[in-house]
Design a protein around this nucleic acid. Structure first.
Lengths: 219, 219
DNA sequence: TTATTTTGTTAGTATAATCTAACTTGTTAG
DNA sequence: CTAACAAGTTAGATTATACTAACAAAATAA
């Protein structure tokens, strides 16, 4: 059996290793707000259980089994977020905390039912892909808005990482998934970007924001 | 803050004290399958926190605050069961285990939303009353089927206590909440009762069953 | 390349929730 | 009424998850 606490460590490790393939004790410590020695001993424990590759003073990696476990927890999280938005009428910035708890429910039938009622969705309300029931995540090749060039036209596909504050900011600007943006200017000094979309002809987005917006180029 | 474990003790105590007003360490121990010394120290802890009246060698009682806490957990449980049946299409004998976990979710909005989507129900799928948001349970004055007399016509209103096995048995007999039963005979030897309902003219129910069926007399 | 800082590890402590063994109190059957 | 049994309690051990303090290794800066 795998405890709720262990699940949280696996999920953190999965998210941290998503890009680089590895993560450090220090990074997990900061993300979970848990002191390093605690993280260290938990990593040893998870290594015993076969979920993590642990070697003294070396970066951490998930084993294949660890990746699968983590992806299945993330699947439950994202299915839940989708359900809360689509079937219960929550806003996309209200669902994270609730999903953070429901992801630990042990009941295959419950999540199967959700999946079914939602029509087997492949992305969550923030555009992040939902791993399948084997823990396989179909990775889209979206690019971050801050890597685009002047003149590009792109569609907003996902927000990553997405804080509640960021989502509320996007709401206030009427920026939703699926919105098509045209890039008009990039300020070299602070890398802020001027875009137009819908009826808005010149919105300025800071680099802090554009670094979290995943887009699919149209032209 | 009140832990998930503490919530389970409060709920057990609430249910055990529902009829008699008090319960013993031994009863809680058996119900939760936790040894007596563990229960004992937890009762002291809950007494410290103001949820339980504890005195050595005396029966346990909930304080008013304890009753309210417990009723609010039961509210979450029953709302969840109702939601699972009404909105997600689960059968009434499948929902207990899931609700047992979801009742510990901390999110007033989540349960408020459920309540709203269900149209503010007052009973759960097993006919048990749902406490209101102040922890007040409207007690119906239903009677158990085994206290009825020959010739009585009654409506099945609730099943208490309801095990998965019992619910499956009732399903197999097509006995649902709201079914109207006519009592034709009571066997003095084993107190089994012969009833008719729907197109069934003579079904025999054992006293083990009739002692769990709460009914409202029609005549 | 050495000194300093950051990161990782070990050792020991704390708290929550469980257990077993042993003892005490209360209840019940002769 | 007392002996035996059941229920309640106390004491001490165990496991999971956290912490702090102190030390070791690795990375970085001078």
């Amino acid at each position: 059996m795998i405890s709720q606490t262990e699940e949280n460590y696996l999920k953190a490790l999965y998210n941290l290793t998503y890009l680089k393939g590895e993560a450090t004790v220090n990074e997990i410590s900061k993300r979970l707000d848990i002191k390093m020695p605690t993280v260290n001993s938990m990593m040893k424990k998870l290594s015993e259980k076969g979920f993590v590759h642990y070697e003294s003073y070396k970066p951490l990696k998930l084993t294949e089994e660890g990746k699968k476990e983590a992806a299945l927890i993330i699947r439950k999280h994202r299915l839940t977020e989708m359900y809360l938005v689509e079937k219960m009428g929550f806003a996309w910035d209200e669902v994270h905390q609730i999903a953070e708890q429901i992801e630990h429910i042990h009941s295959p039938e419950f999540f199967t039912k959700m999946d079914q009622l939602l029509g087997y969705p492949t992305v969550d309300p923030h555009g992040s892909p939902i791993p399948d029931h084997n823990g396989v995540m179909r990775s889209e090749n979206y690019i971050f808005l801050d890597t685009c060039k002047i003149g590009n036209v792109v569609t907003l596909m996902a927000v990553q990482p997405s804080s509640k504050e960021l989502l509320q900011y996007l709401n206030s600007k009427n920026l939703e998934l699926g919105t098509t943006l045209t890039i008009h200017a990039i300020e070299p000094f602070d890398r802020s970007i001027t875009v137009s979309y819908d009826s808005r002809s010149a919105e300025v987005l800071s680099s802090k924001v554009t670094a979290t917006l995943l887009v699919r180029p149209i032209s």
